[in-house]
Structure formats: C-alpha cells, structure tokens
Design a binder for these strands. Structure first.
Lengths: 208, 208
DNA sequence: AATTCCAGAGAACAGTTGTTAACTGGATGA
DNA sequence: TCATCCAGTTAACAACTGTTCTCTGGAATT
C-alpha cells in the first residue's frame, strides 16, 4: 500500500517529527502562543530557517500537533464506549483507559487541555473540530446500546458531549496527579468513577 | 471602616488597575505566557519600569487577575445554587445567570478558561485554589437541601465539583457564541439545560 | 518650612525574536 | 553521466524583550 519513501523524503519527515517532538517538550512549561520558532529549531539542532521547510508558523505546527495528539485517539474512544459488560464494569474500564493514556502520552494530553482554550485561534478551531468528531463517534456507539431506545438524536449527542467533556476533565486531573503520590491518583480515580456513575444513573432515568 | 486614600495611593491604584485592564484586553488574542511587560505598559502609556512598582512579573499580574476575575464571583455562585423553586426552575435560572455573567465580563471568563490549564504555574495554582473554594461553597449549599439527606460528605463534594466544572464548560460555550447569531446562543442554552437536567436526575436517584 | 519618600521617567544593556536572501551539497530523474 | 531539485545552512536585518541604574518632581511626614 504505502510506497517506500526515498532517502530525501524520509530525512525530511524525520526532521519534521523532531520539530514536533521538540515543540511538544517545550510546551510543557509554556503556551503555544509564546513558543518561538527559533526555540524549537535550537532544541532540534537545525538552523532557524529550516523550520519554514515544514511549517508556515508555530500556529501551523500547533495544528499539526493537534492531529498527532488526537488523531490516534479515535480508536481508543470508540472501544472505551463500546466495551461489553454492565454499567459499573464499563465505567471502571473507561477510567482505567484514560489513566493509561495519560501515563503513555502526558505531553499530548497537556497540550490539548492547554490549547483547547488557548491563545491561538486556528489551533482552538482544530481541537474543537476533533472533539466534535469524538462526540459524534461516541453518539454512534451510544445509539447501538439497547439503553438508547426512545432517545432522540439531540439527546444522544448531548450525552455524548457530556461524556467527552468529562473524559477531558478526568484526563486533566490524572495529569496533575502524575507526579503526585499514588494515593492522589487513587483519589482522582474514585472521584471520576462516581461522577461517571452519577451521569450513568441520570442516563438510566432520562426517559422517566 | 476604609480610610480615605491619599492622593499618592489613589494614583498608584489607578495605574495598577489600568495595567490590569490593559493586560486583560491584550489577553483576548494570546496567552499569559506570551504577554510581555512592555506590551502592557505601552498600552497604558507608562514607562516599562513603572510596571515593577506594581508587579514582580507578568505571572504576578496574572495571579492578581485571577482574584479580580473570580473573587467577585463567589456571591453569584452561592445564590445560583441556593435559589428556591423546583429543580427545573433552578436549572433555568442558573444557566441564565451564567449567560448574563459571560455577557457582562467576557474577558474575565476567557482569561479563566484559558489560564486554568495555561502555561504559567502560579496562575494555574491560583485558579485551582479558587475553584476548590467554589466547590466547597457549592457543597455547603447543597448540604442545606433536603434532597441531600443521606449523602456522604465525599459524595456531596463530588457533585459540587461536577457542577463547578459544568458551569465552566457552559460559560466557555456561551463565550464562543458571544459574536454568533442568537440562534447559536439558544442552542447552547438548550444543550446546557439538558446536561444539567441529566445530572439533576442522576442526583435524584443516587441513593437508590 | 524643611525633609523624606516613592511612583514613574529616561537611558542604556545584552540578548532575543521572525523573516529575507543567497548559498551548498547530496539525492533524484533523464 | 549530467542537469535538476530541494532540505538545510549561513549571514544579516530591524525590531523587540526583561532588567539595571540613575534621576525627578510632587506628595507625605515632621
């Protein structure tokens, strides 16, 4: 399927990825709107002008980071919502998956949480678009559930957005707890579990 | 009670407020971590060095902005939660209050949403502390409600955090809809209302 | 009336930024 | 093999940054 890249294209992609990685690392202690192009190239070890071969601006790089951070996340979200088992099992499993993802890609999670309401408009827009996609996917999965019988499309989408926002809040809490003692992580797990449980209860009695 | 300020102190506070206002305006299109001290003083019309008479750094100014933006909000939150009437009336009233607040202080709301997960640690910390206070106040109000009978303290605080987060999400949605056609505002109102309603239902059946 | 205080001004500092133009040298395709 | 391409380099630019030190003029204090 995928054509083998030439030495040239391969090297270019390597540099591009290095720029993305360096930027992501630098963004742990600042926002995208204060990230300088020279700062990034310096971290990678290339000339400042090389930056322009890959991105028009740091905002452009930010949009690419959104795709990297959220693009690969869709499969996880889908499986999280659609896993079998009773309600309680699914909640536990969902939160566990979030915790694992934060462990595996903390910088990605931080970037999304930070730039979702950040100072760079195109990046905010890109994140918003991806989150809308997530909500639509979650809605599609919810619709398959027998519990969704009698629900209007609007209400399903409303619930899906509630889940997506809750997912982000929980991820952000796990992120803050990353370098904290494990008891703090346990506290977050308990909190998120019960919040999700309450939403689940509300869902169950929505049509009363 | 309050001693009348001398000409000197009054003028100083005036300049200080001008710096805060200018910074807040500049932060509509960028994040705090990219806000320069010279940028702020230029907007006010004072020398760059005058900045140091009021703030140690822009991060310090940011913390002051947190107090300005959230400090005056506590009364509103309390009355929002404690208003009388049945569940549905309270939800409508709460969302209306949020919408009004966003209309009245859009820059404040934007600042909080942006810097809650922003790149400046002391500011994040200040916002987090204030939100914890909000949650505790909400919890105290919830505890007065007869519906809270049988609830543990932990569960009440869990619910309070859910409400506070939901409040912020809703405020952020109204902010995005500020310059959109009124039908978009209506859509946000409907969405937020139903989400709050679902949470309310979950609350009602929590002890089942 | 004389003295102290202090918010703000002014000038200068070394260091940083984004962007331009012209270049080099190795991969690419004829 | 030779001409073309193009990712990355080098050098230079005007503009900007935070921070320092010294100074000033009017308010506050005695």
């Amino acid at each position: 399927m995928s054509h083998t890249l030439g030495i040239r294209q391969a090297q270019k992609q390597k540099t591009r990825q290095a720029l993305l990685d360096a930027a992501l690392a630098l963004l742990e202690e600042q926002s995208l709107s204060s990230l300088g192009l020279r700062e990034v190239t310096r971290a990678v070890g290339v000339a400042p002008t090389a930056f322009y071969r890959h991105f028009r601006s740091t905002a452009d790089l930010g949009v690419a980071l959104v795709d990297e951070a959220l693009g690969s996340l869709h499969p996880m979200v889908r499986t999280t919502v659609s896993t079998a088992g009773d309600s309680e099992e699914r909640i536990t499993r969902a939160i566990e998956l979030i915790a694992r993802h934060v462990d595996a890609y903390p910088a990605h999670v931080r970037f999304i949480a930070r730039e979702r309401h950040g100072g760079v408009q195109p990046v905010r827009e890109a994140i918003r678009a991806q989150l809308v996609r997530f909500a639509e996917e979650v809605k599609a999965e919810l619709a398959k559930d027998p519990e969704a019988a009698g629900w209007s499309d609007d209400d399903l989408l409303m619930l899906a957005h509630l889940y997506v926002d809750q997912m982000l809040i929980t991820a952000s809490l796990f992120l803050e707890a990353l370098e904290a003692p494990p008891e703090e992580r346990e506290r977050v797990t308990q909190l998120a579990t019960r919040q999700l449980r309450l939403i689940s209860i509300g869902r169950g009695h929505w049509l009363d």
